[in-house]
Each structure stands twice: as structure tokens, then as C-alpha cells.
Simulated scan of single mutants.
Amino acid sequence: MFLTLQRYFNQFQPLSAPALEAIEAICKPITIQKNKNLQHIGQTCQTIYFLENGIARIYYLKDEIDITEGFYFENSIIARAESLFTGRPSRKGIQVLETADLIAIDSQKFFALFDAYPEIERLFRKIIEAAYIDTINRIESLQFNSAEERYKSLLESSPDLINRVPLKYIASFLGITQVSLSRIRAVR
């Protein structure tokens, strides 16, 4: 279990054995069933999750419409950063779209390791930097690309998404209606 997380860390920065042991000591494996919430809207984020298998999405409600902010696949970190860093309840939730195995890391215990292991703090900074770049790319995609271009890019980066995620969530992620998504798919 922890080896998958270690391999993920190595993409950013390898850690020493003592640092890895310290992280492993605060990790807890969990399984969440399909279509269940990992975190509810209004909950304060106090856990960083590593998704070993399955798919999850971050979503919010706007005028009672369910909107998908992002999809998370195997070998990715999921957290509501705005809540994690401010301690305020999040206006977004995390839902598992397939039964998923995750590693839950208590954020307060994780952050407490930063002073003892500066390499862990560096690792976390690199992970957050990568997430920030992904967020900027997402915003720019919505600003500069057509719905067709966003759909094509999504398929290129996640080819099996269509088979694993309901179309209504894909449409909301792309910022279009399900009818518009059907038209785009019909042309392809």
C-alpha cells in the first residue's frame, strides 16, 4: 500500500528512510464505496488523501446545479486546499465515482513533520506547486479554448474517462450542458 504513495513522492523528490517511516506512521488506508462522499460540502478539510485506485471528483453546487471542478485518478493527491490551509469549511465536496482505495494522511500530523524533516516540507511544496500549475492550466483552458478543444484535451489526457465517468459530470467540468457535449461527441 505505502509503496504506491512512495513512488508518487519520488516523482517530485525522493525522501530518506526516516522521513518515509514518519509519514507511513500517520497514514491510514480507507475504502470508500462508489458514489459516496469522501468529504461533504461544508466540511473542514483536515485530511490529505492519496488515491490508490478509483476515480474521485471535487464538486460544488451553484444555484442548485452540480458542477464538477476536477477529476482525480489513480496515483493522485486530493484535498480541499482552501479549507486545508485556512481551517474554514469548504464550499466544495469530494465524491468517489468508483469504489476507491485511498491513503488518508492527517494534515496536522503531516504538517508537524515539516520541522523535523525539511525534505517533507520541500516535497509538499513541490506537490502544491504542481497542483497550482494544473489549476492555472484549467483556468486558461476555460478562458482560451473552445468546448471542443477542452473535450479533445480531456480525452487525450484521460482516454478512459468516458467509460468511467457519467457524461453529466464531464459536461459540467467542461463548462457546457450535457446536450452540448452530446453534439460535440456526435461530430467526433
Rank of each mutant, 00 (worst) to 15 (best):
M1S: 10
F2Q: 04
L3G: 02
L3C: 05
T4C: 02
T4N: 02
L5K: 01
Q6K: 04
R7A: 06
R7W: 00
Y8S: 02
Y8R: 01
F9W: 03
N10G: 00
N10Q: 06
Q11C: 04
Q13G: 03
L15I: 09
S16N: 05
S16G: 08
P18W: 12
P18F: 14
A19P: 08
A19L: 11
A19R: 00
L20Q: 11
E21F: 03
E21R: 10
E21K: 12
K28C: 08
K28E: 14
P29G: 11
I30L: 12
T31V: 12
T31H: 07
I32A: 12
Q33H: 03
K34Y: 13
K34I: 07
N35L: 13
N35D: 14
K36F: 09
H40K: 13
G42Q: 15
Q43A: 15
Q46A: 10
Q46T: 15
F50W: 00
E52D: 15
N53F: 04
A56I: 07
R57C: 08
R57F: 03
I58F: 01
Y59S: 05
Y60Q: 01
Y60C: 03
K62T: 14
D66L: 05
E69T: 00
E69Q: 03
G70L: 03
F73K: 00
F73C: 00
S76L: 00
I78S: 05
I78F: 00
I78W: 01
A81N: 13
A81L: 13
A81S: 14
E82M: 10
E82W: 07
E82T: 15
S83R: 02
S83I: 02
S83K: 05
L84E: 02
L84I: 00
T86Y: 11
P89K: 01
K92R: 11
Q95G: 15
L97A: 03
E98F: 09
T99F: 10
T99D: 11
A100D: 06
A100N: 05
D101P: 00
D106Y: 01
S107P: 04
Q108K: 14
F110C: 08
F111H: 07
F114Y: 13
A116F: 10
Y117Q: 03
E119S: 09
E129T: 13
E129L: 14
A131E: 00
Y132T: 01
I136C: 01
I136A: 02
I136R: 01
N137Q: 12
R138K: 06
R138F: 04
I139S: 07
L142H: 12
A147Y: 13
A147N: 14
E148D: 07
E149T: 13
E149A: 11
E149M: 12
R150Q: 11
K152P: 08
L155T: 11
S157G: 06
S158E: 07
I162G: 02
I162S: 00
N163V: 05
N163P: 06
V165D: 05
K168S: 14
Y169N: 03
F173P: 09
F173E: 01
L174C: 08
I176P: 07
I176V: 15
Q178C: 09
V179A: 12
S180V: 06
S180Q: 15
L181G: 06
R185L: 13
A186D: 09
V187Q: 06
